[in-house]
Design a protein around this nucleic acid. Structure first.
Lengths: 352, 352
DNA sequence: AAGTTTGATGTAATCGATTACATAGGTCCG
DNA sequence: CGGACCTATGTAATCGATTACATCAAACTT
């Protein structure tokens, strides 16, 4: 970092040859750089002969447009930022795949930001988008950036199109892709009630979470339509992780009177909870029924296979990406997309 | 796409104000743009007074350097490409997190490419790196790009630093971060043998895979040191997925003489396999022992909890990122890093 | 005291594309 | 036949930073 000449990279094996520029192509095809650019961006505005020569020259030189130069001039990055709370969570990875697929097909790249609950990271990525590194963003974390720094000397930054996925963002007027969490949770609760369960426990998500609020409402709706009383003692705190399920399980095992069914708001928690029940000598579903939510891959092969609420994760990702692309390309787009969930009945829930 | 003026984005809510440029900061601080640039890049080469004025002006304007312009001039993107075969696989997500963390701390962003077995995608990302969109790449997929297009009229492209993670890349002279798959598989095999198992089945990974070759070697090593014969009939094909485990399970269930232990080269396969065994009325580990590999989160809460070989996934990601950063910044870096695995004994394996 | 070094700063070239504007040649129409 | 219009193309400005080079004053050398 001291002086010039030092910072040129080291020899990392291969021969470094300057990549072809648009000028090289232009010279080879005997046209101007403008024509080369047009041959690629608007082929119909270039004569067939010139176009052919340009394409040939491109093939010969292996020319690939320099994205930095392109972005600098056209103000388009063809990059999308995906913000999520936890990259290592199974639930998100399939969604990410759906997003990536769709973005890829439309020629966009994906940059991932795993917030990991760090405000520092959040600030960083706020600056990141402000700096115009991405054309748009998909937010899976339930809130916008940097709302702290408003109104001050700070002038408004560039506004880029945003889409909220899964978790709604309360005060923001942006498209929202989600499932109907309330109805889904209600259906699951009714399912349990219909099998005769009257003492149904609920393992929640993080309290701050909009998903959680909806699902909790749905749970209460379900109790009500089934004519069951709501008992706060049967609500156990969780955060969608396996460990939270394990903890909730311990809590239940320690009780003298136990519920006959447990509705976990994520499959991870359900699987963790079942583990704890087994360790305590309880059987699922004979002694206690357990239901999950999400239908992750492991739900079908859990022991016993888990009754759960299927979320179309890949499709959620695809839908979010496709709405964002519409926004980016100036096409009209829906404000709200709700994909269907499906009750998947397996063996972890039984009639009383 | 027809004419000019059409392609300016639509009104998406917020007020769009031009972001501050280096010129605005320079004017406000009453210095040249060069001084602003230096105040940020090499503060020690700018007088304290000027620096203070610049920083104040930056705070006032909310200036953030335009990355496209910066990249265009300095040829540095501060972006790293991560190439992997399947984004939705649990095994990778924790590794990704380790990578992201480390990159973030060093000021690098992460672009993800989920190859999904598509050569088209591969070609795209080859062009992507060639175009200089990223400073370096971490490859989890076991091979380089576009080796097909060599020697032709195609001139060599820019060479960027690469690091291979998990899967080795045979013919490439690049740093490799991995575990000792052969030794790890050998140890697991010995563990099974030491408990009295003599008929040990092996559920493989994809045959083309270097991980698989190493683990298979290790399996044979383990048999040999235990004085057990190698029986090809006990090798079942797999590909690390849950479904492959289910299939292998069916195959075993159908046999008249079954192995007493099964070594699956991924936890996903082990879990899928156990599911099939249960469905057929077999018990683990009473009737048959099952071992996994990786120690994913679900291994500990499987029923029964899975005996497996722990891979430090997050650390693998961190190590790969940190080696790549060393390369990018011209520091010396090791050619090979091998992280330790650990045999995790749970309940899915028992003595005969 | 003259020459040399050092430090702080400014000027302007540069990175590589896109694109507004200019131009040249051809077609069409009254 | 001459202006209007269209098509294909070229010229050069532009995007916003970084940085080589120039400049100038102050400090230091001998």
């Amino acid at each position: 970092m001291d002086d010039v000449g030092q910072k040129d990279g080291p020899e990392h094996g291969g021969i470094t040859i300057r990549a072809a520029r648009i000028q090289d192509v232009a010279k080879l095809a005997d046209v101007s750089t403008a024509t080369v650019s047009r041959a690629l961006a608007t082929p119909e505005r270039v004569s067939p002969e010139a176009r052919a020569r340009v394409l040939e020259a491109i093939a010969k030189t292996g020319y690939v447009p320099n994205p930095a130069a392109r972005t600098l001039r056209s103000q388009k990055t063809y990059m999308v930022l995906v913000v999520l709370p936890d990259l290592s969570n199974t639930f998100f990875s399939k969604i990410l795949r759906g997003i990536e697929e769709t973005l890829f097909e439309a020629g966009y790249g994906m940059i991932i930001s795993d917030l990991d609950g760090s405000p520092e990271k959040e600030a960083h990525f706020a600056a990141f988008t402000a700096a115009g590194r991405v054309d748009g963003a998909i937010l899976l974390n339930g809130h916008l950036f940097g709302q702290s720094r408003e109104g001050e000397g700070q002038p408004a930054r560039i506004t880029i199109p945003l889409v909220a996925l899964c978790e709604a963002i309360p005060a923001a007027d942006i498209p929202q892709i989600e499932i109907d969490n309330r109805t889904a949770a209600c259906r699951m609760t009714q399912h349990l009630a219909s099998l005769g369960h009257r003492r149904i426990a609920y393992v929640s998500g993080p309290a701050s979470n909009s998903l959680e609020r909806d699902r909790f409402q749905g749970f209460k709706d379900g109790l009500e339509t089934a004519g069951l009383p709501f008992d706060p003692a049967l609500v156990l705190p969780g955060d969608y992780t396996i460990e939270a399920g394990v903890r909730a399980g311990r809590e239940l095992v320690a009780r003298s009177t136990r519920p006959t069914a447990v509705f976990c708001t994520s499959d991870e928690m359900a699987i963790g909870l079942m583990r704890t029940l087994f360790s305590a000598g309880l059987r699922v579903p004979e002694d206690i029924s357990v239901a999950g939510f999400d239908d992750i891959e492991f739900a079908a092969v859990a022991e016993p296979p888990l009754t759960t609420m299927h979320q179309p994760r890949r499709e959620l990702g695809q839908a979010a990406a496709s709405v964002l692309i519409d926004l980016l390309q100036g096409r009209p787009s829906p404000k709200l997309i709700r994909l269907e969930t499906e009750l998947v009945i397996r063996d972890s829930v039984a009639a009383l």
